[in-house]
Design a protein around this nucleic acid. Sequence first.
DNA 1: AATATTAATCGTAATATTGCGATATAATAA
DNA 2: TTATTATATCGCAATATTACGATTAATATT
Lengths: 110, 110
Amino acid sequence: MGLTKTEIFNEEQNQLAIALKAIAHPARIAILQQIIAAKACICGDLALELGLAQATISQHLKELKTAGIIKGTIEGVSVCYCINDEVWNKLGTQLGSFFASYGVSAKTCC
Amino acid sequence: MGLTKTEIFNEEQNQLAIALKAIAHPARIAILQQIIAAKACICGDLALELGLAQATISQHLKELKTAGIIKGTIEGVSVCYCINDEVWNKLGTQLGSFFASYGVSAKTCC
DNA sequence: AATATTAATCGTAATATTGCGATATAATAA
DNA sequence: TTATTATATCGCAATATTACGATTAATATT
């Protein structure tokens, strides 16, 4: 085996899992923090800032881009990456309600 | 290669990545939703509710437990799983500030 | 045009995850 | 004690991820 059975889960579950998986890596969290902190695209500087090879950063950026979390716009020779507002806010809201869906007050066991 | 370079990232980045990775699977999201919806431990019923083998569910529960997100208490022959309040709330807060750290108003590019 | 710069992609090796049958462990029930 | 029930663990095969050097593609500079 070794293949996630996506067909037995609903859209929400699969999509949330994909989005979280895209963020669930220290390098990608670091990349997002850099992009946010710079309040701008940091382009290829990321490879220097974090201590990873250019190919590795490019791969991580691709994953974030595929998940829709960031978007890149060509700027001369380099590419400017930044947060995709819509996706970011939607995911934030979705996670917010997921975490809020557990109300401690109503605990009935453990 | 193939080994995440955790040593080049900080504690916050590594821990958040581990927590998100634990949640970033449709089966584990479904498990958490079930536990939350039942507002109680659902124990082995999970294997029946979701369409996965008992061994598979047990493995997913172990991952969630290892990440500290849920905790299990023995209840006779079965085990009662439920949300770990502290960890859950802390993670929710952490994610909340992470997503809030990106203020759309200050956008300067893209 | 020739050269430099930047980013994407390819290929590869190492490691991790996913899912499940089979088996082991532990607690209750007969 | 001997079932019965519930969960955990082992072992395995399939697949996915991570990282990087090397190469390619595209734009800029000279």
